[in-house]
Structures are given as structure tokens and as C-alpha cells.
Amino acid sequence: MMNLNTEESLSKRQLNSLEKHLLNDFQHGFPLVSRPYKKIADELGTTEETVIDTLNRLQQTGYVSRVGAVFRANSIGASTLAAMALPEEELEQVAELVNEYSEVNHNYQREHHYNLWFVLTASDEHTLNAILDDIEHRTGHAVMYLPMIEDFHIDLGFDLDFDSGY
């Protein structure tokens, strides 16, 4: 659990040029070749070992959450965004209950009357609905569900602004 108000950012040090390139330039187009880190190294004029070491370090410090595929929502199974409006004193308990479901992959507290927002992904729609019903039944609170109708974004990651703060 990460508290966004109090948590200090991870080791606030200047990122070097290679780190910045690795963070910014490979948010898409990570090479699908036998030795991808070697290909990246060739593009950035360094060695495969340096790229692997640097990515390892960025991952350990938390700047990179993972190297890998980002799957499109709804392309596998059924998913929905769901929200609940909870009394402040019940929020933590309900959040823990919701997190118990392995089908819940994101869960955020937000400042709003609807204060708990989570994403559910299940193998099919039937399972998805059963889980929503189960959560309502177990918590005694209604779940508002807002499945995606259309995705408008061409996901290329986004340009990191290293000048302001980093």
C-alpha cells in the first residue's frame, strides 16, 4: 500500500543520460528480437551488459515498474471499472475485501463521494458479474460499474518531462 500524501519519492537523485533514454525512448517499440537489450545498446551506443544493469537498477529503485507487454483492456476476458461510495470509516475494510479478489488489478482511493475505484478483469462476463454481486452482498454497499465502450487513446506512453524536478 502506498500513501500518496506522505510517501517520499524514491531516492531523489539526478538521472543520468542513459537512464533518461531508457525511461523515455522505450515506452513502446521494445525490440522483439532474440537479444533485445543488445539492440537497445546498439541504438544508444553502449553495451548490452550496461543496458541490463541499468534497467535492473531502475527497476530496483522503482523508476521502472516492469519491462514487458502492456495488454489492451478487454482484449482478454471481460473487464470493468467499478466504484463505490463508502463512509470514511469503512473504506479501509472494504478496500481489503475488494483486494482479496485476484481479478482486481487496480484499486485506488480517490477524493470524491465515490471514493473507491477499482478495475476488475475476469475470464468472462459471467464471472465478472458474479464477483460484482459478491462484493455488493458481502459489503452491503452498491457497486457502480462502468465498462469501457470505446478506447480513444493510441497508447505510446508519454513524454517524460525531466526538466521539471528531474
Partner: peptide, 20 residues
């Protein structure tokens, strides 16, 4: 399109994007 992209996925929060 099942895979949107293959990436080194940055953690925006750790990189200073505190307001989501």
C-alpha cells in the same frame, strides 16, 4: 492489438508525477 505496446514501463509516481 491484444498487446498495446512492449515497453520499459516507467513508474510515473516515482518519477515525480504525484498528481494522478
Amino acid at each position: 492489438g491484444v498487446i498495446r505496446r512492449i515497453a520499459a514501463v516507467p513508474n510515473h509516481y516515482a518519477l515525480g508525477y504525484k498528481a494522478n
